[in-house]
Design a protein around this nucleic acid. Structure first.
Lengths: 139, 139
DNA sequence: CTGAATCCAGCCCGATACTG
DNA sequence: CAGTATCGGGCTGGATTCAG
């Protein structure tokens, strides 16, 4: 990365650079920290992806993400709802059903998110290889 | 998000959907969890962005991200290096200098990352508003 | 079925002090 | 300047139990 491999990359770097110069990475009013930090919690991203296909019931989500605890499922969904990314609708049936769906805002997040997922798939092997190499040298 | 707002969105949803059907979100071999979880730690993303502009010395990074502790800076950089995203070069000067830079792999992550940052900037206000609304109703 | 409440382990990460 | 070592607090998140 001494020299960007493509013009697009160079332009991207410039954009980042000027953005950094203007905003600084301090906590206050830094969108990155306010938004991306949230995707950091263990489950938000997974749930957003799980909801990409349309509305889902609580139990369905539970089964879609096999190893989430019901506590974390509830909590993460509430956080996402609080940020306006998902919407919650209760059906007063018996027993009651609750359906979660992406809001318009949440839907708009899918595109950048898909970029990341694509990248992750494409370079997953590279990363695992790099890790193995690093650990081998450490020994 | 009952009905995708654009054809592009619909296509995106479909892509996600078929991807989920094929891979499932189980931990094993799920690129999302292996990669995105790393962006979850408090500093990785910030450091990648800070390195977007070119190689940076340890102390420079420390000053670029004002509130990182030196411990976390060292540790996060090592993790990124382990994953093959950044490279470390030592100059045997006096006193010694260490330069960190994005690897080709790390550079390729910049593009999807920029997508997220752009989204974050664009919708930062919406999210803060949604939060305020949610908290108001809770009371 | 959905969710709240409680208890508790583990780790993330910050503060501090110490080496080459 | 760059990095390590140690300690400790706070938060994340899992298991379990209870409720609507």
């Amino acid at each position: 990365m001494r020299e960007p491999s493509s013009p697009a990359a160079a332009q991207l770097v410039d954009a980042f650079q000027s953005w950094m110069a203007a905003t600084d990475l301090s906590p206050a009013n830094c969108p990155v920290r306010d938004v991306i930090d949230h995707l950091g919690d263990k489950w938000s991203t997974l749930l957003l992806i799980a909801l990409a296909g349309g509305p889902r019931r609580f139990g369905v989500l539970r089964r879609t993400v096999p190893d989430i605890s019901q506590r974390m499922l509830t909590q993460t969904l509430r956080d996402l709802q609080r940020d306006g990314l998902v919407e919650r609708q209760v059906f007063p049936t018996k027993p009651p059903g609750v359906e979660y769906s992406l809001s318009a805002l949440g839907g708009s997040l899918l595109e950048p998110l898909a970029g990341l997922v694509t990248w992750a798939e494409r370079h997953h092997a590279d990363i695992r290889a790099a890790r193995a190499r690093f650990d081998a040298e450490a020994a």
